[in-house]
Design a protein around this nucleic acid. Structure first.
Length: 605
DNA sequence: GCCGTCACG
DNA sequence: ACGTACGTGACGGCA
């Protein structure tokens, strides 16, 4: 009888009181599961990474103000099978909507216990994000404070000097955990009403909510790393670095910490007497653009640049990644964060697998370390020129639309326009300049910014920009009207209605205002690309499931998807992925996806 | 904890 | 006269 007991707690924030008591089994959950109309839940686990965490207890809330804590591995209790069996019934019931603040995490923890959460998800963290993607912190603590003026006790304070939540006395644990589930339930009504009022409910239910399940699968799948090869690479980088290091000390005439910008400044600008070209808040800049310029007059800056490149690759990738291989799965499991960026993009952390090197000889060698499981290949699919195609659609610019309909080389076309020459006379250098101009357009171009990027004068940059807009009046008009609309409403939106408030758009300070104008230009384009690939991910995920394919989606890198594909599925998956990505949305221009595959990520590209 | 730097899209 | 490309995350140095 005592094996599975619920600890009942009235929610804290109204009365400021929480009572714990042991109700008599059988539990109300088990008895009344058919009558549950919605369920708020929250997992307490040890550690941070969901793939290795183990569940301590779960808080449940079926009605406002009354939440329960179910200890599962709490203290000396270990009633795992009994508790899980009861939870499974409710959490796997597709007819019961689930409420929670960070449901991807909860879903992943439950999966390790063999529970596969299903059904509609009311994720309050995501709701908060859609309501204001500028908010820097969507923790339950922060959202509860903003919308309910509810002050939550910090988890670190509850934990104190204990190692695990399972060591927190059960009364205190109950109070803390039950409060979370109850708070999420209360926030749900408020936030989802606001979502509906602002027309964001469709974006939530059709894109962000289904994406939770896709991302959970991706994180769970992880990706395989050739650990030995990576460790060899680290040693090789070490030897290279040793050589560069001694050359640097010889040139400088002394040894110093190359990684210390302070010490480096002394060497470059005081001892050697090179000209400081740019300032930072704290001193003279030794950044890449500065060192590249200085490299024309002295041999040291180039050595520093080479050192920095290799040091970065060694510390951030070669040395860091092996430590993150999960002991249970032997693979690397990133976290995809759905509530970080202001534009709607995902982010990736611990480790960030969206910034794995690709450029240069060493970059390629790091990509080669990402490999497919035995019998599988890695398949990469990336959108070609996605942001410019979206700009073509949103601006309705005749020239851009025409170019993409004809599948022209867009950078060569731009080069011919800004240099005023026929396309067949465009040189590689001209194309490179035009490529930078095209990027600049999407970023909310300014003569100064372009001049910096191209190392030309602001005057020359302004000429390029003027010629570009003379040929693309549609883009010019679109940018002007976007800024005008933003000044009216103080926000901008993507094609799918994702909103980003831009309060600075009417600032009296010209710098702040121009910055806001660039955001107003860039956000709808970058954000629509994010909407688009999210739709593709959901559709691909569904088709892979429906057709019983074993292929796993593993990574999203903004305009690229990476899959681990059993060899016999390659042809079928290529077809599905290409089609779903190219038809995720129907735009005025065709979408183009390039696909490759191989044993490692470098080969797949 | 912030800063500068640099990896990616 | 001013300070400027858009979006991220991780590292080492330093206070």
């Amino acid at each position: 009888m005592e094996q599975f007991s619920l600890f009942k707690s009235s929610k804290g924030h109204e009365t400021g009181q929480t009572i714990s008591e042991t109700p008599s089994p059988p539990s109300p959950i088990a008895r009344q599961s058919s009558s549950i109309t919605e369920l708020s839940f929250d997992i307490e686990a040890t550690g941070r990474n969901p793939v290795s965490d183990s569940i301590v207890g779960i808080a449940l809330c079926r009605e406002k103000g009354r939440a329960y804590y179910v200890p599962i591995r709490h203290s000396h209790r270990a009633n795992v099978p009994e508790a899980i069996a009861i939870l499974k019934k409710v959490l796997e019931d597709e007819a019961i909507p689930k409420i929670g603040h960070n449901l991807k995490y909860d879903i992943l923890i439950m999966r390790k216990e063999g529970v596969h959460v299903k059904g509609i998800l009311y994720n309050t963290m995501l709701a908060s994000y859609l309501l204001n993607p500028n908010k820097p912190d969507h923790s339950l603590e922060s959202v509860g404070l903003e919308y309910l003026l509810h002050k939550k006790r910090p988890f670190t304070e509850v934990l104190g000097k204990r190692h695990s939540f399972s060591d927190v006395p059960i009364d205190e644990a109950t109070q803390y955990a039950a409060e979370d589930a109850a708070l999420a339930m209360e926030l749900k009504d408020i936030l989802f009403k606001k979502l509906k009022d602002q027309g964001l409910d469709k974006l939530y239910f059709e894109i962000e909510m289904p994406l939770i399940y896709v991302l959970a699968d991706m994180e769970e799948a992880g990706i395989k790393i050739n650990k030995n090869k990576l460790e060899d690479l680290s040693k090789e980088l070490d030897r290279e670095l040793g050589g560069i290091e001694s050359r640097i000390y010889t040139i400088a005439g002394e040894s110093f910490n190359i990684n210390s910008p302070q010490q480096l400044q002394k060497i470059l600008f005081e001892k050697i007497g090179l000209k400081p070209l740019k300032k930072t808040k704290t001193g003279y800049s030794t950044g890449m653009d500065v060192l590249e310029e200085l490299a024309k007059t002295h041999e040291l800056p180039m050595e520093i640049l080479n050192y920095r490149t290799l040091y970065k690759l060694k510390t951030t990738y070669a040395d860091a990644l092996p430590k993150l291989i999960n002991k249970r799965t032997g693979r690397i499991h990133t976290s995809f964060n759905q509530t970080v960026t202001a534009t709607g993009r995902l982010s990736s952390s611990e480790p960030n697998l969206q910034n794995i090197p690709i450029r240069g000889e060493w970059g390629i060698r790091i990509r080669e370390v990402f490999i497919a499981a035995d019998g599988c290949a890695l398949l990469s699919a990336d959108y070609s020129q996605i942001e410019l195609r979206i700009l073509a659609h949103m601006s309705n610019d005749e020239g851009l639309i025409d170019a993409f309909k004809k599948d022209m080389d867009i950078h060569s076309k731009t080069a011919s326009e800004i240099f005023g020459i026929p396309e067949n006379a465009v040189t590689g250098d001209m194309r490179r300049v035009a490529k930078t101009v095209n990027f600049g357009v999407v970023y909310g171009i300014s003569p100064f910014g372009l001049s910096e990027a191209l190392n030309i004068s602001p005057k020359e940059a302004a000429d390029f920009i003027n010629r570009y807009f003379d040929k693309h009046a549609g883009v010019r008009n679109y940018m002007n009207s976007t800024i005008e609309a933003a000044k009216e409403s103080a926000y901008v939106a993507t094609l799918m209605g994702r909103k980003r408030p831009i309060p600075e758009i009417n600032s009296a300070n010209a710098n702040i205002r121009q910055q806001a104008e660039r955001l107003a230009i860039n956000t709808p384009v970058q954000g629509t690309a994010a909407d688009l690939i999210k739709i593709a991910m959901i559709n691909i995920h569904k088709r892979l499931k429906d057709t019983n394919l074993k292929t796993k989606m593993t990574l999203q890198i903004h305009d690229e998807l990476l899959f681990e594909v059993p060899e016999e599925e390659i042809d079928a998956v290529k077809e599905i992925v290409k089609h779903e990505m190219e038809h995720a949305l129907s735009l005025k221009v065709p979408l183009k996806v390039e696909i490759g595959w191989g044993r490692n990520w470098a080969e797949a590209h």
